[in-house]
Every structure is written in C-alpha cells, then in structure tokens.
Design a protein around this nucleic acid. Sequence first.
DNA 1: AAGTTCTAGGAAAACGCTTACCTTGTGACC
DNA 2: GGTCACAAGGTAAGCGTTTTCCTAGAACTT
Lengths: 345, 345
Amino acid sequence: MAAQQRQVTLTDVARAAGVSTATASRAINGSSRRVSEDIAARVKRTAEELGYLPNLSAQTVAKGASPTVAVLLSDIADPYFSAIASGIMARASEAALMVTMAASERSGARELQMLRTFRSQHPRAIIVAGSRDEENAHSQEVTAALRAYAETGGRVVVISQGPSPFDLVDIQNHDGARKLAHALLDRGGANFGVVSGRVTLHTNADRINGFRTGLAERGHTLADDAIVEAEFTRDGGYVGMQELLARREDLGAPLDTVFVTSDMMAFGAATAIRDHGLSVGTDISLAGFDNVGLTQDVTPAMTSVEIPLHEVGRSAVRMALGSGTEPVHLAVQTHVVLRASTPQR
Amino acid sequence: MAAQQRQVTLTDVARAAGVSTATASRAINGSSRRVSEDIAARVKRTAEELGYLPNLSAQTVAKGASPTVAVLLSDIADPYFSAIASGIMARASEAALMVTMAASERSGARELQMLRTFRSQHPRAIIVAGSRDEENAHSQEVTAALRAYAETGGRVVVISQGPSPFDLVDIQNHDGARKLAHALLDRGGANFGVVSGRVTLHTNADRINGFRTGLAERGHTLADDAIVEAEFTRDGGYVGMQELLARREDLGAPLDTVFVTSDMMAFGAATAIRDHGLSVGTDISLAGFDNVGLTQDVTPAMTSVEIPLHEVGRSAVRMALGSGTEPVHLAVQTHVVLRASTPQR
DNA sequence: AAGTTCTAGGAAAACGCTTACCTTGTGACC
DNA sequence: GGTCACAAGGTAAGCGTTTTCCTAGAACTT
C-alpha cells in the first residue's frame, strides 16, 4: 500500500491558484459574496486538478451546523423501519444531506446514549422513528435530551407517537385499525381475537383501541381475554397466536377472525395457525398491519393496513428542513388492503 | 420555543472548573497524559452540571479522523441489505462508532457522488455493500475514489465481490449454489431452470455458475435457454418466472425445479407460478438464496441458502477497525436450508 | 475634478478542540 | 545538599474552514 498521503486542503488550492484562502473558499464552497468569473474558474480548475475535497468537519466547526440528519430507530432489520429509512435516505440525498443512523434495539439506555452522540454531531435535525414506550424508564430523559437539542437550534421530528411537543409525522394507527374492523365485519367476521405487541407501546395501544372502536361502532365487543400480548416480532406473533389458540376453547364463542397488530407478527401467527393444524383463511381469518411488501407473497396473501412508509420517511426529512417555530403535525392516512387471508365468510 | 442557546464548550467547563482547557480536555475526553484524581473528578462534575457535550466535528478537525464508519449500500429497504446494516450498526455501536449511511439505488453516478461526500467526512472506514456491476460505467472511477481514500489513511471494506484490492468479506455464493444443486438433485430434481437478476452483477453470475458446477459434478447440465434474466427485485422474480414458464414448452424436458438467485425474487416467482395455475412444490420445486427471515413464513416454506448476514455486517466493522497493511479476505460460508418448497420427488 | 458609493480581493480572527512544548514543584539518588 | 528525573499543570500552536473587517481601486455622481 502506498505511503500515506496528506489530504489536499483549501490552503493548498489557494496557494496553487495564487489567491487567498478567503477567495478560494468563496469560489468553491459558495457564499453570499461574489467572486469574479475568471478567478472563480481558475480556482475551481485548480481544485479539480489537485483532487481537493472539502473537509466537512472543518466546515461544520466554522459554520456551526453540519449538513446531516441523524436518525434514531429501533431496528433497521425490521421492514417497517427499513422502509422508513429508505424514504429518509432518498429525500436526504436530494437535499444534499448526509444521514447518520443508529438503532436503539428498543433499549432506553441505548437510546439515550445514541442521542448524546447525535447531539455531539450538531446535525441539522434528529428524526426519531419508533413508538414511544410508556414503560421505558428513560422516556423522560429522552424527551429532555431532545428538548435540549431543540433549544440549541436543532429540529426534532418524531415519527408515529401521539401528541408531541416536536414536529410529528402522525401515522393514523387508530383510524386504520378502526376501518379494518369495519372491513372484517363486512366480510362476516363475528368473533374476534387480537394478538398484539406490548401495549405499553403507543402504536399497539392505538391499533387495539382503534380496532375496538371500529367493532363498537357496529355493536360488537372485544373481550379482554381475547387479546394476547407478546413480543413485537415475528416470533412473538407465533407465540402469541399459540397462546390465543390455547385460550380458544375457553372463549365464549368460536374465534373466527384475528387481528395481529403488525405484519411481521402476523406472519409468525400464520405459521402458528398452520402448526396447530388449522388453515389460515378457511378456519381463521387473519389480518396484519403495515402492509409490508411481502403481504402479497405469503399464502394466502395477507390482509393488512397500508402505511405509506417510504413517503413517511420523505416527509420526515421535509419537515426537518422546515424553519417554522411552531411544531408541525402531519397526519398520514392509512387504508385497508383486503386479501385472501380474510375471505368472505 | 425558547430563545436559542449557545452550546456549552470545553472552554466554559475549563473556566468554571478553574483549570486550563488542556487539562479539561485531558480529563474529559481522555488522553495519554494523566490528570490527578481530584482535578479530573472536579472537571467531570463541572462538565456534567453544565451539560457539556463534546463537539465531534471539532474533535475530528483536531485529531484528523472521525469516529465514524460510512456505509454505502444499494437499497436499505431490501432485507438483504438491512440485515447487513443491522450487523454493522450493532458492532459499530459496541465500538463507539457512528454510522453514516447512503443508498446508491444502484446508480453508478450516485454511488460516486456519495463516495465523494463520504470522503469529505474523513470516516475511519468506508464499507461498500452490494455487488459490483460489470456494466456499471462508473465502476473504474468508484475504485479510483476508494483507492484515493485508502491512500489518505482510510480503510475500505467491501462486502461480497470477487477479488479485491481492499479488505473483503467474501460471501461464498458459488459454493452455496453448488451445494444447493447437490441438495436439489438429492431431492429428485431432474430438469432445472434458473431465474436470475442481471448476470452482470457478480453475485448473480457466481450463483448461476456455482449452480451449474454443482449440477455438472453429478453429470447434469443446465441449458442456456433455461436461464432467464430479470430485475433483481421481487417484481423481477415474478416477470422472470412468467418468462420461464412461457419457455417451458419449448424446453426439451418438463421443468421440475427452479433456482431463483434471491429470496425476494423467489417470492415473486412463487406468486407467478400460482398465477399460472400451478402449485409450488407439487408442480415445480422452487429454491431461493439468502435465507431472509420470511422464507419460513411463506407457504410452502422456501428452500434457500443461508448467509449469516448480520454476522457479515459485524465482521465488516471488525475488519474496518483492523490496522494491518495487507488487505484481508474473510470467507463467509453459506449453507443450504431445505424446506417444503422443494419436496422429495 | 472632487466626492461618494460599490466592488472584489486579502489579512486575520474565530469556530471548539487536541497536543507539542514549556514550566514548576516534587521526590529519588548518591 | 545538589543533581536529576519525572509528574502534572499551563501556554499556545495548530487542525481546515468561514467570515468579519479592512483596503485599494473602479464606477458613479454632481
């Protein structure tokens, strides 16, 4: 490997072009001040020849803010978050912003830690994706950290969690679940069960409540013991469904339709149903939430509630770029996509 | 919103604690030089009280390198990449490194652009995930940019693409596909077809060649017109399979087993088979590659070749942290996971 | 032609940190 | 008791930028 080379600095370019660093800076990296055509051209050419690349950190120190948005999410391997991340990265790239990302793995302590690191970076904005968890011991401190960041001039955009003192991309979980309930009733569902991730997560609570509301509007009820709580993962869905099937006999009427609060869980739940010797659709109708790409590829294709996740990510960046002083709340509509897993019965 | 506040700097802390900035720096952010217990404690306490957070950019400028790894990948919404990213982020977090990430969306021009931005950042390492595409017009320039970066002291880690002048996490695609061929022969497959993403992508080429090699080792051949090339996406899999089914009659013998070069494509392919009125498993055995989480949840569960993607991501960071001068190549083994989509026939 | 306003370049301070170098005080050694 | 080594603090230079002044000349006014 070749001997280590020093990076080309603006000073090098300036000297080579025979101008001051001030002029070089203005010519290359832009400024309100203008530079005469010929000099600017000469400087740019010299920069090109020398292979100059601006030092982002130095720029950040000098300017006081870096062209970066920081993204905090629970788990990038989850398609829900990776779809959002994809939108964020796409929009950020258009706005010439870098993206730095970290996963909290749903640990409050880690969340706090990453937020500290983010703040050290002085990003233009911090985007927090992932439902606030009421049981999270660090929830207070997280909010405090975000507020402190906002007070030093940063923007905070939160994706998907109830009322918020910050900019908010508000996914209509409640309404989506409510509409899903109507749709399932229309398909002849009569006895409902729910498999949910931990209800201390607002997202899950909203979806359950919305579902219950939807049923209630048509005079149906959801028994408390027809709701099973499990891990908010594919495997959690499997286990939760097993539990629900075990409780099945004890329930007053035979269960015919199950709402699982996320697609990933629903995929696990479907496998549990089959492992139990039953058939998805025929024996038990099954619906998920999020409408991730694979809902249409599983068999039977899974009914779900679509959230335009990519667009949610893009919107978050758009809001991060905003400059208003009042927090903006953007409601993102969701809608039901009926598929074979919930046939007419 | 409160009036904008100035951030607390090291100078503030030093003054408040009654020491010089040199001492404060040594006490808080560590150094080879030691500081007496009591002073260190006082400084730390003061920093805590004032809510001091180090300015990462300033540190980077002063030290010449930032505690960051930059990750360039094709598309974060693809589970293949998000699994890798997840491993990268986990390992990076352990090593107290930030992660900045960008998606090329498979455009060479964009790839080059992001690489420039990355270089501006002076990260400790750049990790490139995603197969090199031979048709990529910018391929040369990309390599040149990476080399230039390496020459200024950065480390480059490449995930999954043949021989490389850089550190390499070498996923054994060829070998995995070869073993898959054996396994499918053992299950009684006799007439094979392949649906692949563009073969100009090394990954696809390796998988096809490995599969062909595996067949050849048992005296079977793969006809050229039994290979269909399509987009390297779920929808590409659907379209590619349609095409293969259309060609089916023209093929000498009745197709009984199809290898699709990625799971995502295979999911699409399965739907195409069903839409064509055939059944996956019974009529046509189907196998994918990557073993993404959902292979076990589709029906029938999909045979695939496992790549420990999370571990791949972790390894990439581990190598990025290395300091050797010679490029390291790490071979990552793959192995076949047989499921119901390829029953004994 | 004298005065005024622009214009475009340069010098140097500033951003927040690290670190090479200097200084002083302490204890070890003989 | 004098020399030395060393430890632990401070001073100030430096990292690569941007930006605030300053200045000299050009281009207008009248």
